[in-house]
Amino acid sequence: MLELRLVQGSLLKKVLEAIKELVTDANFDCSATGFSLQAMDSSHVALVALLLRSEGFEHYRCDRNLSMGMNLNNVSKMLRCAGNDDIITLKADDGSDTVTFMFESPNQDKIADFEMKLMDIDSEHLGIPEAEYHAIVKMPSAEFARICKDLSSIGDTVVISVTKEGVKFSTRGDIGNANIVCRQNTTVDKPEEATIIEMQEPVSLTFALRYMNSFTKATPLSNTVTISLSSELPVVVEYKVADMGYIRFYLAPKIED
Protein backbone atom coordinates (compact mmCIF):
# COMPACT_ATOMS: atom_id res chain seq x y z
CA MET A 1 0.00 0.00 0.00
CA LEU A 2 1.29 3.39 -1.02
CA GLU A 3 -0.22 6.71 0.02
CA LEU A 4 1.64 10.00 -0.36
CA ARG A 5 -0.12 13.26 0.46
CA LEU A 6 1.52 16.45 -0.71
CA VAL A 7 -0.15 19.64 0.53
CA GLN A 8 1.80 21.82 -1.89
CA GLY A 9 0.63 19.85 -4.93
CA SER A 10 1.98 22.48 -7.30
CA LEU A 11 5.49 21.18 -6.54
CA LEU A 12 4.66 17.85 -8.18
CA LYS A 13 3.16 19.64 -11.19
CA LYS A 14 6.36 21.68 -11.57
CA VAL A 15 8.55 18.59 -11.16
CA LEU A 16 6.80 16.87 -14.05
CA GLU A 17 7.06 19.94 -16.27
CA ALA A 18 10.78 20.06 -15.43
CA ILE A 19 11.61 16.53 -16.53
CA LYS A 20 9.08 15.44 -19.13
CA GLU A 21 10.96 17.02 -22.01
CA LEU A 22 14.14 15.14 -21.16
CA VAL A 23 12.72 11.74 -20.26
CA THR A 24 9.77 9.88 -21.82
CA ASP A 25 9.26 6.87 -19.53
CA ALA A 26 10.66 6.36 -16.05
CA ASN A 27 10.30 4.34 -12.88
CA PHE A 28 9.27 6.29 -9.78
CA ASP A 29 10.77 4.52 -6.78
CA CYS A 30 9.11 4.70 -3.42
CA SER A 31 10.91 3.76 -0.22
CA ALA A 32 11.10 4.85 3.41
CA THR A 33 13.55 7.56 2.33
CA GLY A 34 11.19 9.15 -0.12
CA PHE A 35 9.83 9.34 -3.61
CA SER A 36 12.60 9.28 -6.20
CA LEU A 37 13.41 8.85 -9.85
CA GLN A 38 16.57 8.35 -11.83
CA ALA A 39 16.47 8.29 -15.61
CA MET A 40 18.64 8.99 -18.62
CA ASP A 41 17.52 10.79 -21.73
CA SER A 42 17.16 8.64 -24.84
CA SER A 43 20.67 9.57 -26.08
CA HIS A 44 22.26 8.64 -22.73
CA VAL A 45 23.99 12.01 -22.59
CA ALA A 46 22.03 13.44 -19.66
CA LEU A 47 20.64 11.96 -16.47
CA VAL A 48 18.01 13.29 -14.11
CA ALA A 49 17.80 12.39 -10.44
CA LEU A 50 14.78 13.46 -8.38
CA LEU A 51 14.33 13.06 -4.64
CA LEU A 52 11.32 14.13 -2.62
CA ARG A 53 12.07 13.12 0.96
CA SER A 54 9.33 11.37 2.93
CA GLU A 55 9.40 14.07 5.66
CA GLY A 56 8.25 16.62 3.08
CA PHE A 57 4.89 14.89 2.65
CA GLU A 58 2.04 15.55 5.07
CA HIS A 59 1.31 11.84 5.05
CA TYR A 60 3.74 9.24 3.73
CA ARG A 61 2.87 5.57 3.77
CA CYS A 62 5.01 3.14 1.83
CA ASP A 63 4.69 -0.38 3.25
CA ARG A 64 7.42 -1.78 1.03
CA ASN A 65 9.72 -0.54 -1.69
CA LEU A 66 7.79 -0.01 -4.87
CA SER A 67 8.84 0.92 -8.39
CA MET A 68 6.14 2.38 -10.60
CA GLY A 69 6.77 2.74 -14.31
CA MET A 70 5.08 5.77 -15.84
CA ASN A 71 4.97 7.65 -19.10
CA LEU A 72 5.85 11.16 -18.00
CA ASN A 73 3.76 12.81 -20.66
CA ASN A 74 0.73 10.93 -19.33
CA VAL A 75 1.56 11.86 -15.72
CA SER A 76 1.82 15.46 -16.84
CA LYS A 77 -1.61 15.23 -18.51
CA MET A 78 -3.07 13.94 -15.22
CA LEU A 79 -1.37 16.57 -13.06
CA ARG A 80 -2.41 19.41 -15.33
CA CYS A 81 -5.95 18.61 -14.16
CA ALA A 82 -4.97 19.55 -10.59
CA GLY A 83 -5.35 23.16 -9.50
CA ASN A 84 -2.23 25.01 -8.41
CA ASP A 85 -3.50 25.18 -4.83
CA ASP A 86 -4.72 21.59 -4.74
CA ILE A 87 -3.48 18.95 -2.34
CA ILE A 88 -2.28 15.95 -4.35
CA THR A 89 -2.33 12.39 -3.02
CA LEU A 90 -0.78 9.44 -4.85
CA LYS A 91 -2.24 6.04 -4.06
CA ALA A 92 -1.35 2.54 -5.24
CA ASP A 93 -2.28 -0.88 -3.92
CA ASP A 94 0.28 -3.67 -3.71
CA GLY A 95 0.49 -5.53 -6.99
CA SER A 96 -1.78 -3.08 -8.75
CA ASP A 97 -1.01 -1.98 -12.30
CA THR A 98 -2.49 1.47 -11.73
CA VAL A 99 -1.75 4.55 -9.67
CA THR A 100 -4.39 7.04 -8.53
CA PHE A 101 -3.82 10.77 -8.31
CA MET A 102 -6.30 12.44 -5.96
CA PHE A 103 -6.74 16.19 -6.13
CA GLU A 104 -8.40 18.09 -3.27
CA SER A 105 -9.19 21.76 -3.50
CA PRO A 106 -7.91 23.78 -0.49
CA ASN A 107 -11.39 24.17 1.03
CA GLN A 108 -12.28 20.53 0.32
CA ASP A 109 -15.25 21.43 -1.90
CA LYS A 110 -13.90 19.52 -4.89
CA ILE A 111 -12.26 16.12 -4.83
CA ALA A 112 -11.16 14.38 -8.01
CA ASP A 113 -9.41 11.12 -8.62
CA PHE A 114 -7.58 10.18 -11.78
CA GLU A 115 -6.42 6.62 -12.24
CA MET A 116 -3.49 5.99 -14.56
CA LYS A 117 -2.13 2.74 -15.96
CA LEU A 118 1.41 1.82 -14.94
CA MET A 119 3.88 0.30 -17.36
CA ASP A 120 6.83 -2.09 -17.14
CA ILE A 121 10.04 -0.22 -17.79
CA ASP A 122 13.47 -1.79 -17.92
CA SER A 123 15.64 0.90 -16.46
CA GLU A 124 19.32 0.98 -15.66
CA HIS A 125 20.20 2.48 -12.30
CA LEU A 126 23.54 4.23 -12.13
CA GLY A 127 25.68 4.64 -9.04
CA ILE A 128 26.55 8.32 -8.64
CA PRO A 129 29.42 8.70 -6.19
CA GLU A 130 29.81 11.77 -4.00
CA ALA A 131 32.40 13.93 -5.70
CA GLU A 132 34.59 16.94 -5.03
CA TYR A 133 33.92 19.62 -7.63
CA HIS A 134 36.50 22.12 -8.89
CA ALA A 135 33.92 24.89 -8.94
CA ILE A 136 30.40 25.41 -7.63
CA VAL A 137 28.35 28.33 -8.90
CA LYS A 138 25.10 29.35 -7.23
CA MET A 139 23.11 31.93 -9.13
CA PRO A 140 19.52 33.09 -9.76
CA SER A 141 17.78 30.37 -11.77
CA ALA A 142 16.04 32.92 -14.02
CA GLU A 143 19.42 34.44 -14.91
CA PHE A 144 20.83 31.04 -15.84
CA ALA A 145 17.74 30.30 -17.96
CA ARG A 146 18.09 33.65 -19.72
CA ILE A 147 21.77 33.00 -20.49
CA CYS A 148 21.07 29.52 -21.93
CA LYS A 149 18.20 30.86 -24.04
CA ASP A 150 20.19 33.84 -25.33
CA LEU A 151 23.27 31.79 -26.20
CA SER A 152 21.25 29.13 -28.01
CA SER A 153 20.18 31.73 -30.56
CA ILE A 154 23.88 32.10 -31.50
CA GLY A 155 25.38 28.62 -31.13
CA ASP A 156 24.73 24.99 -30.24
CA THR A 157 27.26 24.57 -27.45
CA VAL A 158 28.24 26.54 -24.38
CA VAL A 159 31.67 26.68 -22.83
CA ILE A 160 31.35 27.25 -19.09
CA SER A 161 34.60 28.54 -17.60
CA VAL A 162 35.15 29.38 -13.97
CA THR A 163 38.14 31.47 -12.98
CA LYS A 164 38.76 33.85 -10.12
CA GLU A 165 37.26 36.56 -12.36
CA GLY A 166 33.88 34.84 -12.35
CA VAL A 167 31.90 32.37 -14.44
CA LYS A 168 31.92 32.83 -18.21
CA PHE A 169 29.36 31.35 -20.59
CA SER A 170 30.57 31.40 -24.22
CA THR A 171 29.24 30.21 -27.53
CA ARG A 172 30.07 30.59 -31.19
CA GLY A 173 28.05 30.01 -34.30
CA ASP A 174 27.77 30.93 -37.97
CA ILE A 175 26.65 34.50 -37.27
CA GLY A 176 29.26 35.26 -34.61
CA ASN A 177 30.11 34.57 -31.00
CA ALA A 178 29.00 35.60 -27.52
CA ASN A 179 30.46 35.74 -24.03
CA ILE A 180 28.54 36.40 -20.83
CA VAL A 181 30.52 36.83 -17.62
CA CYS A 182 28.84 36.71 -14.23
CA ARG A 183 30.93 37.90 -11.32
CA GLN A 184 30.43 36.94 -7.73
CA ASN A 185 27.86 39.30 -6.28
CA THR A 186 26.73 38.95 -2.71
CA THR A 187 25.76 42.59 -2.12
CA VAL A 188 22.13 42.11 -3.08
CA ASP A 189 18.87 42.81 -1.25
CA LYS A 190 17.74 39.18 -1.21
CA PRO A 191 19.97 36.11 -0.81
CA GLU A 192 18.32 34.40 -3.81
CA GLU A 193 19.59 37.19 -6.07
CA ALA A 194 23.24 36.52 -5.18
CA THR A 195 25.83 34.89 -7.42
CA ILE A 196 28.25 32.88 -5.33
CA ILE A 197 31.31 31.20 -6.84
CA GLU A 198 33.29 28.66 -4.87
CA MET A 199 36.38 27.72 -6.86
CA GLN A 200 39.03 25.19 -5.86
CA GLU A 201 40.71 25.42 -9.27
CA PRO A 202 39.83 26.91 -12.67
CA VAL A 203 37.66 24.70 -14.87
CA SER A 204 36.39 24.98 -18.42
CA LEU A 205 33.95 22.54 -20.01
CA THR A 206 31.82 22.40 -23.18
CA PHE A 207 28.16 21.32 -23.18
CA ALA A 208 25.29 21.02 -25.62
CA LEU A 209 22.95 23.99 -25.12
CA ARG A 210 19.92 21.93 -26.10
CA TYR A 211 20.21 19.97 -22.85
CA MET A 212 20.96 23.03 -20.73
CA ASN A 213 17.81 24.67 -22.07
CA SER A 214 15.85 21.55 -21.23
CA PHE A 215 17.14 21.65 -17.63
CA THR A 216 15.92 25.22 -17.26
CA LYS A 217 12.33 23.92 -17.44
CA ALA A 218 12.91 23.40 -13.70
CA THR A 219 13.28 27.17 -13.14
CA PRO A 220 9.76 27.59 -11.62
CA LEU A 221 10.78 25.20 -8.81
CA SER A 222 13.49 27.35 -7.30
CA ASN A 223 14.79 30.93 -7.35
CA THR A 224 18.36 29.64 -7.42
CA VAL A 225 20.30 27.03 -9.34
CA THR A 226 23.59 25.40 -8.40
CA ILE A 227 26.05 24.41 -11.14
CA SER A 228 28.84 22.05 -10.05
CA LEU A 229 31.78 21.59 -12.40
CA SER A 230 34.77 19.30 -12.45
CA SER A 231 37.01 18.55 -15.42
CA GLU A 232 36.60 14.81 -14.84
CA LEU A 233 32.84 14.66 -14.39
CA PRO A 234 29.47 15.54 -15.89
CA VAL A 235 28.19 18.95 -14.79
CA VAL A 236 25.46 18.87 -12.14
CA VAL A 237 22.68 21.44 -12.48
CA GLU A 238 20.62 21.32 -9.29
CA TYR A 239 17.28 22.88 -8.42
CA LYS A 240 15.96 22.50 -4.87
CA VAL A 241 12.35 21.36 -4.54
CA ALA A 242 11.22 23.54 -1.60
CA ASP A 243 12.83 22.07 1.53
CA MET A 244 11.90 18.52 0.64
CA GLY A 245 14.41 17.51 -2.01
CA TYR A 246 15.95 18.28 -5.35
CA ILE A 247 16.12 17.70 -9.07
CA ARG A 248 19.68 17.15 -10.27
CA PHE A 249 20.50 17.12 -13.95
CA TYR A 250 23.80 15.54 -14.96
CA LEU A 251 25.19 16.34 -18.38
CA ALA A 252 28.23 14.72 -19.99
CA PRO A 253 30.65 17.23 -21.53
CA LYS A 254 31.79 17.48 -25.11
CA ILE A 255 35.49 16.74 -25.40
CA GLU A 256 37.88 18.06 -28.05
CA ASP A 257 39.32 15.01 -29.74
Partner: peptide, 14 residues
Protein backbone atom coordinates in the same frame (compact mmCIF):
# COMPACT_ATOMS: atom_id res chain seq x y z
CA UNK B 1 36.37 17.66 -33.83
CA UNK B 2 34.26 17.56 -30.69
CA UNK B 3 33.02 14.33 -29.17
CA UNK B 4 29.86 14.19 -27.08
CA UNK B 5 30.67 11.98 -24.10
CA UNK B 6 28.20 9.40 -22.85
CA UNK B 7 26.90 9.59 -19.26
CA UNK B 8 27.72 5.88 -18.90
CA UNK B 9 31.39 6.66 -19.40
CA UNK B 10 31.33 8.47 -16.03
CA UNK B 11 28.91 6.48 -13.87
CA UNK B 12 28.65 2.74 -13.43
CA UNK B 13 25.54 0.63 -13.61
CA UNK B 14 24.45 -0.61 -10.20
Amino acid sequence: WVLQKHILSFFELE
